Amino acid sequence: MDLTTVRWFLMVAELGHVTNAAAELRVSQPGLSRAIARLEEELGIRLFDREGRGVRLSVYGRIFAEHARRLVAEQEAARRALAQAADPERGEVVLAFLHTQGVWLVPELLRGFRQRHPQVTVRLIQDRAVWLEEAVREGRADVAISSPQPETAELAWAPLITERLQLAVPADHRLAGRRRVRMAELAGEPFVGIKQGGGLRTILDELAARAGFRPEIAFEGEELQTVRGLVAAGLGVALVSPQPPANEPNEPQGQAGVRHLAIADPGATRTIGLTWVEARTRPPVVEGFRRFVLSRVGELSRGAAN
């Protein structure tokens, strides 16, 4: 059953006359009659009853017509969706990103992109790095902003910014008056850590191992705002990403009870990058978003350094 014949069937049903339907469709009357006959043979039912010089739907034809209209409507909806997806100024981008990038990086990117492409919808997914990679690989997300660089060859990755990580301590902590600290000085301290699978947790474990100790994790969280809140309550210290640029509105920067110290150890950084599947066909709207993000690398790096 092809949809062209289904459309022809619906035209005959609407006009009640094969000759008039053929004229409307600009096909020959015998050709239209043969197409309807083939459709009836395929379905094994009679779709029309003769009525004078015209035709009317049979009891079976009325049932089939309901489904035929839905078939045609679905095809038209699919065509519209494809046309929209092929339009770089419309359609949808699914962006996955780390919880820690929701404070300033992702909002900054989205603000700039929406100014240029106001008709594009951006759907957001937040999760840990391992799940972001899986979402991109499986096609549930178009691109992801994550760290570290994926090890899977299937995934392409381009660096966006490199962050200098900090240590968050309670305001009354013994180190609160310091500007810099070495990881070895934190042996025995209770840590508020990101859950296992998070990039910051992996870096914390690596930095501590190089300093000769294993961090004592007192509490685990998924979002830095929660982690900083637990630090402010005096429940431990935490390895955190830097505070957003001073010209960005942000709650953590003004959070009472927390002091941020530089970490002197080499490797106390992480690079945030953009991940996508290079071999997968990207709709123009997705490719436009990918190119926009990559074009902002220099500006983002300057912002992260401030």
Rank of each mutant, 00 (worst) to 15 (best):
D2I: 13
L3R: 03
W8T: 03
L15K: 01
G16M: 03
V18R: 02
A22P: 13
A22D: 07
A22G: 08
A23T: 11
L25M: 08
S28Q: 13
Q29V: 13
P30I: 08
G31N: 06
L32A: 04
S33Q: 09
A35W: 10
A37I: 06
L43T: 02
E51S: 12
E51I: 12
V55G: 01
R62L: 15
R62D: 11
I63Y: 03
A65D: 10
E66I: 15
R69D: 12
L71Y: 04
V72N: 05
A73Q: 12
E74C: 04
Q75N: 13
A77T: 06
A86G: 05
A86R: 04
D87V: 03
H99C: 14
Q101S: 11
W104P: 01
L105W: 01
E108G: 04
E108C: 08
Q115Y: 11
R116Q: 13
V120F: 05
T121D: 14
R123F: 03
L124T: 03
I125F: 09
Q126T: 14
V130E: 14
L132D: 01
R140Q: 14
S146Y: 07
S146K: 10
P148Y: 00
P150M: 12
A153M: 12
E154P: 00
P159L: 02
T162H: 10
Q166N: 05
R174Y: 13
R174F: 11
A176L: 14
G177R: 02
M183N: 04
A184T: 09
F191G: 09
F191T: 05
V192Y: 01
G193F: 08
G193M: 10
G193L: 07
I194A: 06
I194F: 13
G197D: 06
L200E: 01
I203A: 04
I217S: 05
A218I: 07
A218S: 06
V227R: 01
V227M: 12
L239R: 02
V240P: 00
V240R: 06
V240N: 03
P242E: 02
P244Y: 05
E251C: 06
P252S: 12
Q253C: 11
G254L: 09
G257N: 10
V258W: 06
L261E: 02
P266C: 15
G267P: 00
A268F: 02
R270K: 11
T271F: 02
R282I: 09
R282S: 10
P283M: 00
P283F: 01
G288Y: 02
F292A: 05
V293P: 00
R296F: 14
R296T: 12
L300C: 09
